[in-house]
């Protein structure tokens, strides 16, 4: 490619120095790509290498054993993560989509701009801060660490992402489609829900899944909300184990057996996330093809 820029204009040929610099920069850029991809490769390789040997039936079905005893698993943490994520989604997804609808359909004004801006700001708030707030809101009022508190924290983190993608996707729906519905005498709310939102469904789902994948691995906001638990718990007002929390606790512990399990937990977590992100990507590209 670099040589494609030919010099035969009759002008002075490109000097060796300039061409050398061009080649040098190309090499540097390739090196940067390799340097960035190396840790990614290393992380995945280690996850698989260390994790796969430790995933077994017991790991997936049992609760943790006391220190020193071999065996045990993270079943309660996996279940706890599912519980907390469900709570977070139930609270966050409708709010986020609603806010996105507001911005897209009613938000062409000062208030809309302000909400848009605030959503972007909220997106950048460190997750640990969200944890503090959920602690103050839920844990202090209930006087309990709880799955609910964890769910509230995750919901707060999901809302801005869902809001902004929903808005973007709704705005992609051509205004003619809306006009067609208005022209039939369909009321505005029916049009928004049954026509606009329905047309944008695949895009909105993409946004929801991205938000979901993002919070699925969050640890910091759960530290003093869900708190963790060595046992099974299904009640929303009790401390609950979560996969990322368990990985954290085990990783910084001094026991080899726990380290092994931390890798196994991490492998499960990453599989969950990669599967949902790729599913979204496939769904989105298929949706785009259909849209054309």
């Amino acid at each position: 490619m670099a040589n494609a820029i030919s010099t035969d204009f009759g002008a002075a040929p490109i000097s060796l120095w300039r061409r050398g610099k061009d080649v040098g920069v190309t090499i540097a850029a390739v090196a940067a790509v390799i340097l960035v991809l190396a840790p990614l490769g290393a992380i995945f390789a280690y996850l698989v290498y260390k994790g796969i040997g430790s995933i077994n039936w017991a790991f997936l079905t049992q609760t943790p054993k006391p220190v020193g005893e071999a065996g045990g698993g993270m079943a309660n943490a996996i279940a706890g993560s599912v519980l907390i994520l469900c709570l977070g989604s139930v609270l966050g997804v409708p709010m986020g989509i609603g806010a996105g609808i507001y911005l897209a359909e009613y938000g062409r004004n000062r208030l809309g701009n302000f909400i848009r801006f605030t959503a972007d700001v909220l997106n950048g708030v460190p997750s640990i801060i969200v944890g503090i707030v959920a602690y103050g809101l839920v844990v202090l009022t209930q006087k309990h660490f709880s799955a609910l508190a964890g769910g509230v924290a995750l919901a707060i983190m999901m809302i801005p992402t869902i809001t902004r993608t929903t808005e973007e996707m709704l705005l992609l729906v051509p205004s003619q489609v809306r006009e067609a519905a208005y022209g039939l005498g369909v009321s505005r709310w029916r049009t928004t829900l049954s026509i606009t939102l329905r047309t944008a469904t695949s895009g909105v789902i993409t946004g929801v899944m991205l938000a979901f994948a993002r919070v699925a691995g969050e640890t910091a906001p759960l530290l003093f909300t869900a708190f963790g638990n060595q046992f099974w718990n299904w009640r929303v007002n009790q401390p609950t184990a979560a996969l990322p929390l368990q990985i954290f606790t085990y990783a910084i512990s001094p026991f080899d057996e726990w380290h092994r399990q931390a890798w196994a937990g991490a492998l499960i977590l990453i599989i969950l996330i990669v599967v949902s992100v790729s599913a979204v990507r496939i769904a989105a590209s298929r949706g785009m093809m259909k849209g054309n």
């Binding site: 960035v36 991809l37 840790p39 990614l40 290393a42 992380i43 280690y46 996850l47 260390k50 994948a213 993002r214 699925a216 691995g217 969050e218 640890t219 910091a220 990322p244 990985i247 954290f248 990783a251 910084i252 380290h259 931390a262 890798w263 991490a266 977590l269 990453i270 996330i273 990669v274 992100v277 990507r281």
Partner: peptide, 21 residues
Amino acid sequence: FTTELLAAIPSVIYGLWAIFV
């Protein structure tokens, strides 16, 4: 896509990898 994937890895897994590798 791969660089996006790098952003999707949870912080705690980066930490785990950092401790042991």
